[in-house]
Simulated assay, not measured.
Amino acid sequence: MTSIKRSNYDKRLPKRAAKSVAKKTAPSQKIFYSIVHTIPGRIRFRIPLLARDTEYTDKLKLAIESDPRVTNVRANQKAASIVINYKTGVISDNQMREHLVHLIQTAQDMVMPKEVMAKSIVGTIFDALINLIDDTRKLNQARNVIVYRRVRTDVWERILSTSRSIIKRLKSATMFILPNKRWRLRGNGKINSQPLKLKSASEPDLV
């Protein structure tokens, strides 16, 4: 009896393992495309998915723009097409075409970097300063109550109140002048001005 049970278990084990491996290595959907026009340094693809998937369009455009050999990228969702201009003489046209086709297929698995508005960064800094001043004023008022048994407007109170007004005006002026520039963030939350390095969703994060 024991030997029969073990043999049946051994027969079932490879099937379960195969199913588990199949789930882990399930390929992403194939992206259909066609080459509409190509000349040295310029190629145009038609990709039907561009017309119905904005997220994929953003990922593909970002993936292509991250290549230093690419000089310009224009995506037209209505026409479901994307035009890429690249440097000639650095890589052969066939190699560049194969590279772009690879990006078309793998862009769906890319992890988009987080973006944050430059205005939101500056606004957060100003708000933190204003909150710090408000907290300092409250501490100063509490000290006056303890020392003088009443709330009084002393030199520190006037300085803090004036500083708060100046910072609020400075914030308003800065937010009006500052352009709507976006900064891309890495996973560690720090602003990164270096060229983007996209990673596949299947790649593990390095600690």
Rank of each mutant, 00 (worst) to 15 (best):
I167V: 13
I35C: 03
L196M: 10
K87A: 10
S3Q: 11
Y56V: 01
L129T: 04
T153A: 09
E115Y: 06
L198H: 02
R6C: 05
D10I: 09
K15P: 00
P204V: 11
S120A: 14
L178Y: 08
P195Q: 04
S163A: 14
L139N: 15
N8D: 15
I31F: 03
G189M: 02
R52V: 12
M96H: 05
V155W: 01
I104F: 02
L13K: 13
T88Y: 01
D154A: 09
V83A: 09
N131T: 00
R69Q: 12
G123R: 01
R182Q: 09
N131R: 15
I133T: 10
Y86R: 06
S34G: 10
S200G: 02
V36S: 07
N192P: 02
S34R: 13
I167H: 00
R69M: 10
K78W: 11
A79I: 03
D205M: 09
V21K: 12
F176V: 06
V116D: 00
R74Q: 13
T106C: 05
L198K: 02
L100S: 04
L49D: 05
L49V: 12
S202R: 14
V36E: 11
P113D: 08
K15R: 10
Q77R: 15
K181V: 13
T57K: 08
V111W: 00
I39N: 07
Q194L: 11
A142P: 01
S120Y: 04
N140R: 07
M110A: 15
K78I: 15
R12E: 03
N94T: 14
R158H: 04
S163G: 02
D10A: 11
L13N: 09
K87H: 06
A51P: 01
H99A: 14
K171P: 07
W156I: 12
D53Y: 03
A107Y: 06
R169N: 14
Y9V: 03
I177G: 01
A201M: 11
K190N: 11
N144F: 08
K78D: 13
K30T: 14
E98P: 00
N144A: 13
R52H: 13
R164I: 01
P179R: 06
Q108H: 07
M175A: 04
H102D: 13
D109W: 04
R158M: 08
A118E: 15
G123N: 13
D53G: 01
K24I: 15
E65V: 05
K24P: 08
V151H: 08
D127I: 01
P14D: 00
S200I: 00
D58Q: 12
L170G: 02
P204R: 06
R46H: 09
I84E: 02
I47R: 04
S163W: 03
R97K: 11
T38H: 10
G89M: 04
P68Q: 04
I177H: 05
N140M: 06
L129I: 11
W156N: 14
S28I: 03
T2S: 12
I133R: 09
M175K: 09
A173R: 12
S202F: 02
V90N: 05
K11Y: 06
V155T: 10
L103T: 08
Q29M: 12
F126K: 02
A118I: 08
W183D: 10
G41L: 05
I159M: 08
A173T: 06
K199Y: 08
I166Y: 08
L103Y: 01
A17N: 12
L160T: 07
I166R: 09
I133M: 10
R6E: 14
L60Y: 07
L13E: 15
S200Y: 03
N144W: 05
